[in-house]
Amino acid sequence: MADQQDLPEGSVQNIMDQESLKWVFVGGKGGVGKTTCSSILSILLSRVRTSVLIISTDPAHNLSDAFQQRFTKTPTLVNGFTNLYAMEVDPTVEQEEVGGSDGMDSMISELAGAIPGIDEAMSFAEMLKLVQTMDYSVIVFDTAPTGHTLRLLQFPSILEKGLAKIMSLKNKFGGLFNQMTAMFGMGEDFGEDAILGRLEGMKDVIEQVNMQFKDPDLTTFICVCIPEFLSLYETERLVQELTKFEIDTHNIIINQVLYDDEDVESKLLKARMKMQKKYLDQFYMLYDDFNITKLPLLPEESLWLRKKLD
């Protein structure tokens, strides 16, 4: 095998060229540069697509910082662009709005609460339902660190199983639910058919999205990492989990790479370069069929962070 230093530099051009892509996930260990990479990716995509939406699903949002513009749960046009939009959502919090304090939403929320994990899944489904009604050419997800991301990718199957369980309860208890709603004077709007219809509609959305997530023509996952042991280990775990979920992944971005310079005299820098080279070699060996892109460690911080510190 050729030394990784001799291999041609990779790029994300294959993502730009794949015009069929609808969903692009960017994920990895905390602190490796996911937001920076997903922001750059969305900017590059905006040059070749009619419209791009970047969504942050990390509770510790950084998109607003990266673009120096306040984003909310409503898609907002990014300053300086005509076709790039951004929004920040938190699947663990949004459920408060999905299940209100009264009416049908509250009843659905109560039903969902009996099934572990379905509350977040339903929130995610509502967000996807909203996104699907908007006409974006491609959607980029700036995800939370690996563990949260894997849970997010499990939501379609969690919701599917949860709704199947609710449907089985409906079949068991027949018209009991309608009798209860009638007893409390809730009327037809809160009957079994109305609530189950709402849940079925959500199930249709999640089934459609689940199929799209597993279609490599429509969905891909880009793993961001740094050339260190823990990041290599977590990337391997992430790739294995994505394979288990049948989600395509064939791009790895290795960030913060130190490039060898003969004039470098610092023992610390030389030691770091030697360590990085060991892990870079392992990345190329483990993922020889992946498109690997290396990004250099820059001598200064990004512009937005320097402005915040000044």
Rank of each mutant, 00 (worst) to 15 (best):
G175Q: 14
A164D: 15
T219F: 04
L230I: 06
D193K: 08
F177V: 10
V224K: 01
A194E: 08
I226R: 02
L232G: 05
G191T: 08
A164P: 12
K214L: 10
G174P: 00
L169N: 04
D261C: 06
N171K: 14
M180L: 15
K161L: 12
E234F: 05
N178V: 05
Y259C: 01
N251C: 11
M186Y: 09
N171P: 02
T219G: 09
E192R: 13
Q208P: 00
E200Y: 13
S168I: 10
F184P: 08
K214Q: 14
C225Q: 05
E234R: 06
N178Y: 07
A164W: 13
L163K: 04
L169D: 02
A271Y: 06
Y259K: 09
F221V: 01
F184C: 07
A271I: 03
E241S: 15
L242N: 02
T181C: 07
D260S: 12
K172M: 13
H250V: 00
D189E: 13
I253V: 15
E262D: 06
L159C: 06
K214I: 07
S157C: 00
M180K: 13
L242V: 04
A271E: 14
F229W: 05
V264Y: 03
K244F: 05
K274R: 14
E246Y: 07
L232A: 05
K170D: 15
G185R: 01
R237C: 01
M202A: 09
F213H: 09
F184Q: 08
K203L: 09
I253K: 10
K172S: 14
S168E: 15
C223D: 05
H250E: 02
G197E: 04
Q179Y: 04
V264T: 08
G201Q: 12
R198E: 11
E192T: 09
D189L: 09
I247A: 01
G162R: 11
Y259P: 02
T243P: 02
D260I: 10
K270L: 14
R237E: 01
V239D: 02
C225S: 15
L268C: 05
F221N: 02
I158V: 14
I226V: 08
I254W: 01
I226Q: 06
N178D: 15
L269G: 09
G197T: 03
D215V: 03
F245A: 12
V239Y: 00
L176Y: 07
N171L: 10
Q240L: 13
E207R: 11
S231H: 08
G162Y: 08
E236A: 10
C225F: 04
T220V: 11
N251H: 11
N171Q: 13
E207A: 07
